[in-house]
Amino acid sequence: MVEAHDPYFVQKQDVIEVIGLFSLQKMTTTMRMLIYGVAADFMDDYVRIGENTVIESLERFVKAVVVIFSDVYLRMPHNNDIAKLLAVGKNHGFLEMLGSSDFFGLPGSHNDINVLEHSFVFSVFAEGHAPPINYSINGHDYKMGYYLADGIYPQWPTFVKTISCPQGNKQLHFAKAQESARKDVERAFGVLQAHFAIVQGHAHFWKCETLKDIMKACIILHNMIIENKQNVNNIDFNYDAIDGSPPLSVSHKCTSELYEFIQNHHYIRDRQTHSKLQEDLIEHLWHQYGDS
């Protein structure tokens, strides 16, 4: 599929009919760089391929993987996925928890807050495209799921942070449960780094666009590995798709969609709701598990 997408990987002859490198050579060097994190010039003795060709092969390979497989292995979660995520959160004691948030990248790249400001994850909430999640905790109603996060994240109701200096048994129990549940995302990153050592290396060498393609390609390949280890007969691959681009109309009036976007935008960043949700979760966890 990569060869069909990018003719660069197809073996060719030059003008004097010298046969060039075949696709297996280029892809082998690329996979060794992704998996072992070795330098480009390390491949010369192993596969008889030049440094510049290795770099170009990696850049083209990861871009091809992202273009070909993103719709399947890097898609937004659908309703069935959301239900599974909420079930995992409930097992940890956190009702309607979508997961843990801890943006990470290659050393030398953005930190958590910089990545958050450019992330599409929460723009989906603001635009009203996320699956509806309505729930009640401790007698208070909420309309969005949330992610567990560490202290550097802003006080948004879409984040439930730990308590740095817990006071009393309730807060101590909450902080312990939150930090324990957050280890899931750390384990996920650890597995990704174990499979693809390139994500542990320095990022200064690569262009920003290539960095994004490398990270996405590693995640896609990781998801392929997970799928291959599972029973594929029980996986639903009938994903909904949108054919073509719908026509866009520009309006200068305050539409209902605009009002909804503004309301969602303010709700996501409402500090009062963030504090109330944390207090309700502290009480919920204590009543469910702490005083037993």
Rank of each mutant, 00 (worst) to 15 (best):
E279T: 09
Y153R: 11
E3H: 06
P131N: 07
N234T: 04
L285S: 15
G93D: 08
R32S: 12
D6F: 14
I235A: 06
E56R: 15
F122K: 00
Y153D: 13
F261G: 05
H204L: 07
G37T: 06
G105L: 09
L221Y: 02
H78P: 04
F103H: 08
T210P: 05
D45V: 07
E227S: 13
E3F: 02
D270L: 15
V115T: 14
L86P: 10
D71N: 02
S109R: 06
R60G: 11
N169M: 05
D141M: 05
M1Q: 13
T30P: 10
M215L: 12
S249A: 08
Y8H: 12
T210V: 00
I113S: 04
E279N: 13
R187M: 02
S70M: 00
S70E: 07
G50L: 08
H266T: 07
H5W: 00
A194P: 09
N111Y: 08
H265N: 14
D112H: 06
H274A: 14
V66E: 09
V124E: 03
V72A: 06
K207L: 15
Y267Q: 12
L148P: 01
V67Q: 12
N114D: 10
K183H: 06
S275Q: 11
R48D: 04
N231V: 03
Q13Y: 03
W206N: 06
I220H: 10
E186I: 00
